[in-house]
Design a protein around this nucleic acid. Structure first.
Length: 740
DNA sequence: GAGTTTGAAACT
DNA sequence: CAGTTTCAAACTC
């Protein structure tokens, strides 16, 4: 996060941005969210993440607003000549700093692209290239956003933002160089707080890649674009689109997949070639990773744009639906790690953390029915959900297979670490398709406990129910699966999507990560919950009766998290600590012991729920209270808190997003799935209610309902909680670097 | 590998 | 919403 955080002080006085900073717009934006505004803005701005635009849509009528923004963007784009003050002016004119901002950034993308592709004439690049296809693309994005806004699948949207940006920060100098050409312009356009030169460069670079795709790829046919527009959101989210990240420079063309519709486009990006480098790849990885997990279309798009990767993309000759199964597996063993990083051309850039890398897998792998090469070492299964718990700064590795499959490597989440006792730094998440035997299958889950690359064995569900781990993970079944009559495959995509939709309609969180980190939700509010050892928990909690939560029957246990007050388990002996952990930790911090281990009701939990439970923020139909207690009572809300966002969500979409707990999730993690799908907006809105307070517990359900107004005992508790939290020093392993 | 246990998911 | 059934993973032998 540090990297991402723009440091104005570091900006040279001569930096052109300084002028920009003086602008009212800049100030205004800055004021909106003092903390990391820049970052968030950028993140949210990611052009290829239509979902970002969704802030508006999320809170209001996504479609309209999205399009509106888009149009505005287009107009602005035309206006926005890189070097012209007009941009600034337009911003000033613009009522919304954010909306404009986004537009501006989008424009910036175009600009960047133009310049990169045509260095000679940077200023003209934008206009000259916008027409035609580019324009369409720009417009199209909004549409996509629209879908995302409405789709429950949005859950992941926020993730990519940081993911992308941050990696970019460490981007390749070469790339920066390219970006720099237009950097100045970009800054004028989109720069709000990102004054830091390097950051700016990276950011620009990121955009530029996207822009490259948009502008450089003449081959993109309109038809495809149209189809994408038509794509069902659910489809997008479900399908495991994969970014192809060919890293071989030798590859002349790169393929991007518009997974959103399961359709792919082939995009040649010669212009990006120079940029491709290990670092570059690294920078791009993150997005890629998320793309796989997230609602696809936007991300994929982005991924395609960003991921200049080597490795052959999985292309379909006839725009077939490209669906790939993605699996995340922790690969244990140093050699694996080494492989992962060495193979990637980029090992380097991320100074303090393992570099993310995209590597092409030498051994071709294929989708179900084809031979898969086994990876060396023993893999630890990591469900996508597991990513949610990953601490920021951890390297993410995406391994793109020749067949189009991707491997995503990522250090295990804290929870996983806790569960496994493994050194986070020694682990790499790798997709391992080679594990097919039951033994191996089990091994996958050994440490993380999170579901990982699933290989189901369904016999009656056709792999279209949540019983099926593949389906539940949003993956198509692949060869290693032993399922019968499987319908969870590209051939039945429609069915799969429809089923998914149905399930989501029943339970919007059905495909959400089962394990979430508390810190995610709370960080927003200035809490340090993530510093609590037991910072992860199961979304719904378990209901174990006989396993004492000590076996993998228990989802909490399996997920490597402790049981929480959400659990209805009996005789819980979960060693990961949540229930116990909370108690213990709190006690350590001086809080009086309030609850029993197995107690279903405990004030700490209640409090914790109120503060830490993103998952509490569930759809209205969920019995759990969505109200976030912290806001009203604590009075500690940061300026960026949800409440602060204020009524003008429209005006400040990004800000609003920023306040979203998702947004604050550590860079590479939670976003992927932690982000609840549609409910996010609702949640946020509710959270803003000033009346929300500490939740009351229902003995039976262990669910809490928000007290209405009033600072009763709950307030006290809450306060106690806060005090405790403040006094506690974060656990390094669990605490991602402070974003600030 | 077969059978049992377990608890989530689905159903009523 | 609670109780029951179905299901497949986890587990045991």
């Amino acid at each position: 996060m540090e990297l991402n955080t723009p440091n104005k002080n570091q900006i040279p006085a001569t930096n052109p941005l300084s002028q920009f900073e003086d602008s009212p717009v800049f100030n205004y934006i800055n004021n909106l969210s003092p903390i990391e505004l820049v970052k968030s803005m950028h993140n949210g701005q990611a052009f290829n993440f239509p979902s970002f635009a969704s802030p508006l849509s999320v809170f209001a009528s996504p479609q309209l607003s999205s399009q509106s923004d888009a149009r505005s963007f287009m107009r602005r784009d035309q206006f926005s000549e890189p070097s012209k003050p007009e941009l600034l002016q337009s911003k000033d004119e613009n009522d919304t700093s954010i909306g404009v901002f986004e537009a501006a950034q989008l424009t910036g993308l175009s600009v960047e692209q133009s310049e990169c592709s045509t260095p000679a004439n940077s200023s003209k690049g934008v206009i000259t290239k916008l027409p035609g296809e580019h324009m369409e693309l720009a417009i199209e994005e909004p549409d996509t956003l629209k879908y995302y806004c409405a789709s429950p699948d949005d859950n992941i949207i926020m993730v990519p933002l940081k993911a992308i940006i941050e990696p970019q920060m460490a981007g390749d100098p070469n790339e920066r160089y390219c970006s720099r050409k237009s950097e100045k312009d970009l800054r004028k356009i989109g720069q709000t707080g990102q004054n830091e030169d390097e950051a700016g460069c990276d950011w620009v670079a990121l955009i530029s890649d996207v822009a490259d795709i948009l502008t450089l790829e003449p081959s993109i046919d309109e038809e495809s674009a149209e189809k994408q527009k038509m794509v069902d959101p659910g489809t997008i989210s479900f399908i495991s689109n994969v970014l192809q990240a060919p890293q071989d420079n030798s590859d002349d063309s790169e393929t991007s997949y518009y997974a959103g519709s399961s359709q792919q486009r082939e995009i040649g990006e010669p212009g990006i070639q120079p940029v491709e480098s290990g670092e570059q790849n690294e920078a791009h990885q993150t997005p890629s990773v998320f793309s796989g997990t997230l609602p696809d279309k936007p991300i994929v798009n982005d991924a395609a744009a960003k991921v200049d990767i080597r490795g052959k993309s999985y292309q379909s000759s006839s725009k077939q639906h490209k669906i790939r199964r993605r699996c995340l597996v922790f690969e244990m063993g140093a050699h694996k790690k080494k492989l992962a990083f060495e193979s990637s051309s980029s090992t380097s850039s991320q100074s303090d953390h393992m570099g993310a890398s995209i590597e092409k897998h030498a051994t071709p792998r294929t989708d179900k029915g084809k031979t898969l090469s086994a990876l060396p070492g023993r893999g630890i299964g990591l469900h996508l959900n597991a990513l949610t718990a990953t601490s920021s700064g951890n390297a993410v590795k995406i391994e793109t297979l020749a067949s189009g499959k991707q491997e995503i490597s990522q250090p295990p989440s804290p929870a996983a670490h806790m569960a496994s006792g493994l050194d986070p730094t020694s682990m790499v998440v790798t997709e391992d398709f080679g594990i097919s035997s039951p033994k191996m299958k089990r091994q996958k889950f050994e440490y993380l406990g999170a579901s990982s690359c699933k290989r189901c064995n369904c016999k009656r569900s056709k792999c279209l129910k949540l019983y099926c781990e593949c389906f539940a993970a949003g993956l198509y079944c692949i060869e290693p699966c032993s399922c019968l009559e499987c319908s969870n495959n590209p051939a039945h995509e429609d069915t799969v999507l429809e089923t998914r939709r149905q399930i989501e309609s029943r339970n919007p969180l059905a495909f959400a990560p089962k394990v979430i980190r508390n810190s995610d939700s709370v960080s927003e509010f200035g809490e340090e919950t993530n510093k609590t050892p037991a910072s992860a928990r199961h979304k719904r909690g378990c209901n174990c009766k006989k396993s004492s939560c000590l076996k993998k029957y228990c989802e909490c246990f399996q997920g490597g998290v402790g049981c929480s007050s959400y659990c209805r388990c009996e005789g819980c002996k979960n060693t990961f600590g949540c229930k116990n952990g909370v108690e213990e930790n709190d006690l350590k911090w001086g809080e009086s012991k309030i609850h029993e281990n197995t107690s279903n009701l405990n004030l700490l939990d209640i409090i914790e729920k109120g503060e830490d439970h993103p998952d509490l923020m569930v759809p209205s139909k969920d019995s759990r209270s969505p109200v976030h207690p912290q806001i009203p009572i604590s009075g500690q809300l940061s300026g960026s808190s949800l409440c602060d966002v204020g009524p003008s969500t429209k005006m400040r979409p990004i800000q609003r997003f920023r306040t979203n707990f998702f947004y604050h999730q550590p860079k590479y993690e939670k976003h992927l799935q932690v982000i609840p799908e549609d409910e996010t907006p609702e949640i946020l809105n509710r959270n803003c209610l000033p009346t929300s307070g500490v939740k009351s517990v229902s003995p039976n359900s262990k669910r809490v309902s928000p007290p209405h107004h009033g600072f009763g005992p709950s307030t006290t508790w809450r306060r106690g909680r806060k005090l405790i939290l403040r006094s506690v020093s974060p656990s390094p392993s669990l605490n991602p670097p402070c974003e600030q």
